[in-house]
Amino acid sequence: MNIFFLLAPFSVLLALIGLGAFWWTVRNGQYEDPDGDAARILIDDPQDAPLPRV
């Protein structure tokens, strides 16, 4: 049973990290331009088109 008290909080913690990452992507505007992002990976020289914070 002791292992439960270690694993349960740990799994919740992992999920919280995932939620935090999702939160960050939304706040960061990463879903604003799905078509553009799909096209941008095809363009060379990424240093010419730096990713700005939207």
Binding site: A8, S11, V12, A15, L16, G18, L19, F22, W23, V26, R27, Y31
Partner: peptide
């Protein structure tokens, strides 16, 4: 954005509450 965040939180909550 607000709906997307709410959706993310609900997904997290549903999955983890279900675990218990």
């Amino acid at each position: 954005r607000r709906l997307a965040l709410a959706l993310g939180v609900a997904a997290f909550g549903a999955g983890n509450a279900m675990m218990f």
